[in-house]
Design a protein around this nucleic acid. Structure first.
Length: 939
DNA sequence: TGTTTCACG
DNA sequence: GACGTACGTGAAACAC
């Protein structure tokens, strides 16, 4: 049948896909002989999805995979350097390329390449032909060079991310519609393909010019009209180069192709072709899935079957054999006998995946609604405990649903198992469930946490939430909670969901958790992060749960009084500001403020940012204020107070728990890539301290009657770690001698004796010290110190000269990150740096992050180790009191006043020795302490 | 929902 | 040789 209207052609950019798959997917090798096959595996999964996954309109009627042919093309004749600087194929990828062609043929899909043409030209030609015949076209690729083809029935889909790329997405990327993409590319050039373009013109400028002049030719003809002298000259000087560039980037849509579209019609899978190939590759999962689909027996695969360990972290074919996830396969446990059967199975197994369902996300307020258990992939149950019918009314709760076990009785049966030291409880984000159960009098232990197992292995690579992990490692998208609860005003709580609807969702989570555990746990050993997980992640869970549940007392009246004062001050400032502006406007709107300052008052300081809005950040306003302008100065005052009021004095009151009268933050253990904790709801790690006004907010954090707050913080911990890691003898000695480290740095750099040090010189040295930790750059330092870039550069050069170890550390860290794709802390925590290979500004970000991560991460490791050791140390010393908060280098305690000194003695020792015995630091760790009835005093 | 601003280490 | 930057976070308000 001839292709035409109603048909849908899919053109897969085969070469592009395997390159990306190779870099994005974990390396995977064939069990029997170690042949690298990661990209082939990803490729086969993608093909299968293409055939199976698309339904309805999206299903291809015609399908082809297009490859580059390894020969010169017409572009090399126009411009010999085209794609000349391409590095050779990675060793592990080269053998996979012929295999992907073989795979295509095994799937019965047209496999197309043609001498003298790039895949992109063939795709352009086929797309054009199909469009002319009235068919729909989808190009499976993320290559920007293909974006010029989008529109008029042609769209692109990113085969790995499953993201659709239509005209809007193209416009977003290039700043112009698909029809002008080649013009922008011609101007901007492309370093990857070695297309020269016009020097100094990037995509943004190119889009600007094209939008104004229409196309490259018109622009070049009218180049004299351009206002910016540099830009004008560039275009005049390089007009021919731009014209050549346009030829290079324009795809040929009339290649004399040797294959007809009709030959691309989708064929049914041929078991005799596809199965032997997949078996040879030893792709277990996909072989079985296709065999099952075709109703034939799967060929045996000779490699050992029960060994998920070696490839546990690889998705798809490497996964252990799991049955399909079926929502209707789960049991609802409604009586004692059924629950007992499950308990028996759990004891037989020795482990169980557990998940709780609750009425909300706040563990301190949410009520337990049900419990899910799973002991085997595909087998899980839901135990409803507190479901109700309807939503209830104002007077009383709704009526309890039928068919549930008695709440107390069920928990009584579960408790011995949940507390049994011989039964491992597997959870996703264990701290949440731990706290829910703790409020029912159950102490969950021992536990494994799939979120933390993922974090220990993959920090920096991706998030660690269940939905994300499930999609990535199980290729399964769990039921969204939204589908049960709805959103917005009509949202209900989980107890109002019908039990029959709740069960598949709930049980699936336990099932998924168990599967993830099976898959990810062995990876700890393989990635050599077992110690990290066992000493710095898993034991932290109960410690944090205790801190969060205990909370910290907050003086509501103090905050409320401050809020009132702030409100008055703000009103006064608003009047004053609007008076200065000559009209009313919203002072809190950066947009309106920008218009007032720069349009109406015509103050200096131009546009900025990708949105085209004026920047009105504090540094801009400070600059204007320094020039003597009152309005920006008043806005700065207003902003400070507004911030304090909305974020702290108002918001904190909302977080005071109705029963405990205390504020209970929640720490995310796997939030920050470096190993730091993050604090949310509310964030108690950014309570003001730097200004006098802000510090008064800390006075609202108080100790109970008869108690005091004790603050213990590491002095200069990151600089000490830098001195150790980079091996800077002068810094190490200074720390051993207890010197003022910034003054010492200044003295060393500027040859000023310590006793003649001025505060200004010391301040500059301090900024440089911090800059080094952040992966220093002349630009950053010049900004921070408000000095010319050349001066900043001179400072940095001087610093490197005096402390040559620093440069060595920076270079070695960069090289390590580049080679391995991650960096490590002293304790073996890995922080992945996937962006390190990228080009442009991203590379700079990635390098600085890579330099900072081992330092920040080692400090985070040390305080984690301390926190885990503190509770047993306090117990041993029979100390009353509790650890309440962590603020990166500080721990805050509440303790009876007469025990404060003992607590400081004990905890200080633990903190200062926290690196031992795993790591011996060449510098001492020093902890300073303070005491007071509120946090401001203690700090 | 994304951007801007600003609080902390 | 230009790109656009200090590192790591979370929350609130505005703008769309």
């Amino acid at each position: 049948m001839a292709i035409g209207k109603g048909h849908h052609l899919h053109l897969i950019d085969g070469s592009g896909y395997i390159f990306r798959a190779f870099h994005a997917l974990p390396p995977l090798t064939r069990k029997s002989d170690g042949l690298p096959i990661g990209a082939v595996s990803g490729f086969c999964n993608m093909l299968f999805k293409m055939i199976e996954g698309n339904t309805g309109d999206d299903a291809p009627t015609h399908l082809a995979v297009i490859f580059d042919h390894s020969s010169k093309t017409f572009r090399n004749e126009i411009y010999p350097e085209y794609k000349a600087q391409r590095p050779p194929l990675p060793e592990e990828l080269a053998p996979q390329i012929p295999l992907t062609r073989e795979a295509t043929r095994a799937f019965g899909i047209a496999c197309i390449e043609q001498e003298g043409w790039e895949a992109d030209d063939l795709i352009a030609t086929f797309a054009e032909q199909a469009k002319a015949a009235g068919a729909r076209v989808t190009i499976v690729s993320s290559d920007k060079d293909l974006m010029q083809l989008v529109g008029g029935g042609v769209e692109m889909v990113d085969g790995m991310k499953n993201v659709r790329i239509g005209p809007e997405e193209v416009e977003e990327k290039f700043g112009v519609g698909p029809d002008k993409v080649v013009d922008v590319q011609a101007l901007a050039g492309d370093s990857v393909d070695n297309v020269p373009g016009a020097p100094g013109i990037g995509i943004k400028t190119a889009a600007l010019l094209i939008n104004e002049y229409g196309d490259v030719e018109t622009l070049l003809e009218r180049a004299e009209e351009i206002k910016q002298p540099k830009r004008r000259q560039t275009l005049i000087d390089h007009a021919d180069q731009v014209r050549v560039s346009k030829q290079l980037v324009t795809l040929e849509r009339n290649v004399p192709v040797e294959v007809a579209l009709d030959a691309m019609e989708v064929q049914p899978l041929d078991a005799d072709k596809v199965l032997p190939f997949l078996a040879e590759m030893e792709f277990r999962t996909i072989t079985n899935r296709i065999a099952e689909k075709l109703g034939v027996e799967a060929p045996t695969i000779s490699a050992p079957a029960a060994a998920p360990a070696g490839e546990a972290h690889a998705p798809g074919p490497a996964a252990p054999e799991f049955p399909e996830i079926k929502a209707d396969a789960y049991e609802i446990v409604r009586d004692e006998a059924a629950l007992q059967t499950w308990l028996d199975r759990i004891y037989e197994r020795g482990y169980v995946a557990v998940d709780t369902e609750t009425t909300g996300l706040d563990e301190m307020l949410a009520g337990l609604v049900g419990v899910c258990l799973s002991v085997e992939p595909g087998e899980a149950c839901y135990i409803p405990l507190a479901h109700v019918n309807g939503t209830g009314d104002l007077l009383g709760g709704a009526e309890r649903s039928e068919g549930q076990m008695d709440f107390a009785q069920a928990l009584e049966m579960l408790k011995p198992m949940l507390e049994d030291p011989s039964i491992l409880k597997i959870l996703q984000n264990a701290k949440y469930d731990l706290k829910i159960f703790a409020r029912e009098g159950i102490t969950l232990a021992p536990i494994d946490d799939t979120m933390l197992i993922s974090y220990a292995q993959h920090a920096g690579l991706h998030g660690h939430g269940m939905d994300m992990l499930s999609e990535r490692y199980l290729d399964h998208k769990p039921i969204a909670i939204k589908t049960l609860l709805g959103t917005g005003k009509k949202q209900i709580t989980f107890d109002q969901v019908k039990i029959e609807e709740a069960a598949p969702y709930a049980a699936e989570d336990a099932d998924v958790t168990l599967r993830l555990w099976t898959l990810l746990k062995p990876g700890l050993v393989k990635e050599r992060v077992t110690t990290v997980y066992e000493t710095m992640e898993r034991p932290l869970v109960p410690v944090l749960a205790q801190m969060e549940m205990h909370g910290i007392k907050v003086d509501r009246d103090h905050l409320s009084r401050m809020s009132n004062t702030f409100a008055q001050k703000m009103a006064g400032l608003e009047d004053e500001i609007q008076g200065l502006a000559g009209r009313k406007f919203n002072v809190g709107s950066p947009k309106q403020l920008g218009e007032i300052l720069f349009d109406e008052m015509s103050l200096p300081g131009g546009k900025k940012g990708k949105t085209g809005a004026y920047s009105t950040g504090a540094d801009v306003l400070e600059e204007l204020a320094a020039q003597g302008h009152d309005l920006p100065a008043r806005v700065l005052d207003w902003r400070q107070i507004s911030k304090l009021k909305s974020t702290y004095t108002d918001a904190l009151q909302e977080h005071i728990h109705p029963d405990t009268g205390r504020v209970h933050t929640s720490y995310s253990i796997a939030g920050a890539n470096t190993g730091r904790l993050a604090s949310t709801d509310p964030n108690l790690q950014n309570i003001p301290v730097r200004t006098e006004e802000g510090r008064r907010i800390r006075e609202a954090f108080v100790a109970e009657e008869g108690n005091v707050l004790v603050s213990l913080d590491y002095s200069q911990i990151e600089l000490r770690i830098l001195a150790h890691i980079a091996g800077i003898d002068a810094l190490k000695q200074a720390f051993r001698d207890g010197l003022d480290i910034h003054a010492m740095t200044a003295s060393e750099m500027f040859d000023v004796p310590l006793d003649e040090m001025t505060p200004e010189v010391r301040r500059q040295a301090k900024a440089i010290n911090f800059g080094v930790i952040y992966g220093i750059s002349a630009f950053g330092l010049s900004n921070n110190l408000r000095i010319p870039r050349e001066d900043a550069k001179a400072f940095i050069d001087r610093y490197f000269e005096r402390f040559p170890g620093i440069r060595k550390y920076m270079d070695e860290t960069k090289a390590f990150a580049k080679e391995h794709g991650y960096v490590e802390t002293l304790f073996g925590r890995k922080i992945h740096t996937p962006e390190i290979g990228s080009s442009g500004p991203r590379a700079g970000f990635a390098y600085r992050a890579a330099i900072n991560a081992p330092i920040q991460g080692t400090a985070a490791d040390i305080i984690r180790r301390a926190m885990i050791r503190v509770p047993p140390a306090m117990e041993k010393a029979k100390l009353p009191g509790r650890m309440l908060l962590q603020v990166h280098d500080e721990l805050l305690f509440e303790v009876p006043a007469d025990a404060a000194d003992d607590l400081i003695g004990t905890v200080k020792d633990v903190m200062e020795a926290a690196a031992n015995p795993a790591v011996h630091l060449d510098v001492p760790l020093v902890v300073d302490g303070g005491t007071g009835t509120n946090w401001a005093e203690a700090h």
